[in-house]
Design a protein around this nucleic acid. Sequence first.
RNA 1: GGAGAGAUGGCCGAGCGGCUGAAGGCGCUCCCCUGCUAAGGGAGUAUGGGCUUUAACUCCCAUCGAGGGUUCGAACCCCUCUCUCUCCGCCA
Length: 424
Amino acid sequence: MLDPRLFRTDLDFVTTQLARRNFAFDADAYTRLEARRKDIQVKTQDLQNQRNSNAKAIGQAKAKGEDVQPLLDQVGQVGEELKAAEAELATIQAQLDSLMSSIPNILDEAVPEGKDEDSNLEISRWGEPRQFDFAAKDHVELGEKLQGMDFELGAKIAGSRFVVLNGGLARLQRALIQFMLDTHTAEHGYNEVYVPFLVNADSLRGTGQLPKFEADLFKASSDPDLYLIPTAEVPVTNIVRDVIIEAKNLPLKFVCHSPCFRSEAGAYGRDVRGMIRQHQFEKVEIVQIVKPEDSAQAHEQLTAHAETILQKLNLPYRRMLLCAGDTGFSSTKTYDLEVWLPAQGLYREISSCSNFKDFQARRLQARWRNPETGKPELVHTLNGSGLAAGRTLIAVMENYQDADGRIHIPEVLLPYMGGLTVIG
RNA sequence: GGAGAGAUGGCCGAGCGGCUGAAGGCGCUCCCCUGCUAAGGGAGUAUGGGCUUUAACUCCCAUCGAGGGUUCGAACCCCUCUCUCUCCGCCA
């Protein structure tokens, strides 16, 4: 949710900024709605004021033992009028809310123009892709050969876009998760949390998945309304919903492992092969809640924390700055980390690190008390994958394979593998 | 799943249908007093909105778990829901 004041003070700025995203904002419709809201709100509050002073007068007259009947006769129609005005205000307010919550965040100045991923900007590269003296196999082939990755079984048990991992590969994924959690808590100062994997609609509104992206979610129950989380970002960021945080407690840094569930509606035919795009996958998420002045720096830092994982695993990657058209709805600026997949010979998204500034905080009413003003002010929220475990598993398999299709365990994972050094 | 009790400011806690946005206490902030400490005295201390062509103040509106209702008027009465606690049952 954007700042309503920005709309009142600089509507042109809002319109041109949203156009960068190819978001057509109807400023005239907004202006008309806002004018009506103001009108009716003033009228409603006027009537409420009348009602209150009438009621007060009756109360006082009664206390003095006077006859209140003449007063009662006077106030008759205020109630009806007020009721109508309140109903109208509620309708307009709902329209305005629905309009406002469908508007994406304003992009950071640094975000390059462009309509899709082809315009994303490469910021840096790390690591040298390994030279293979044999034809590198992809993870599907490797997984089947090792009898550690079974998509048919996943399909039998659940359906398409599900997988069953077995033996060493299942353990390798768990090792990756453990390694990531340990690194972020011990070296990067994050606090590990365990959270609900089913969330209510309020939480999804807070982080921006609702109302616009319901189709991407799995709804688990209608009474009560519960959804499977598409990312731990949702429950973790909602820790601070409706909270006023003391300045001394900032920044808050959370790390959380969770399964993620995505319906991938609209992704039919894309990435059908293998574990790239599943309905269920494991991810370690890092989240920061910071003072507004710190968020730009925190964004760099948080992205570097995710990069550390790739570096320790010795997986070549590059950092991309997403262009205007590719940046997510709630984000002002997003870095994607893309890991090298040798079988396909390309870099593939494995982490997405975003600065939401106050966009989520406004929906969440997540605030801090600014000691300078003594007033509650909105915090800035950030998050990033640190990393997507399923895709990291793929990257390790493909980058650490040998000519016989065996997977060598990266050194940093050895302590988590119970003595296993090679799978296969 | 069954039976019962409850939800009021940062915390505890009072609250008769009518000057109650809310007593009192604790905490916190500022001031006074005291040689230091302790104690004492005074003042202040919710959030959002109306609000925009400045800012402050005054003013107005809303909010006592949430949503409806009754009423001229609801923290208080009625209904629905959510959550918490106690006991019983079940369970990893």
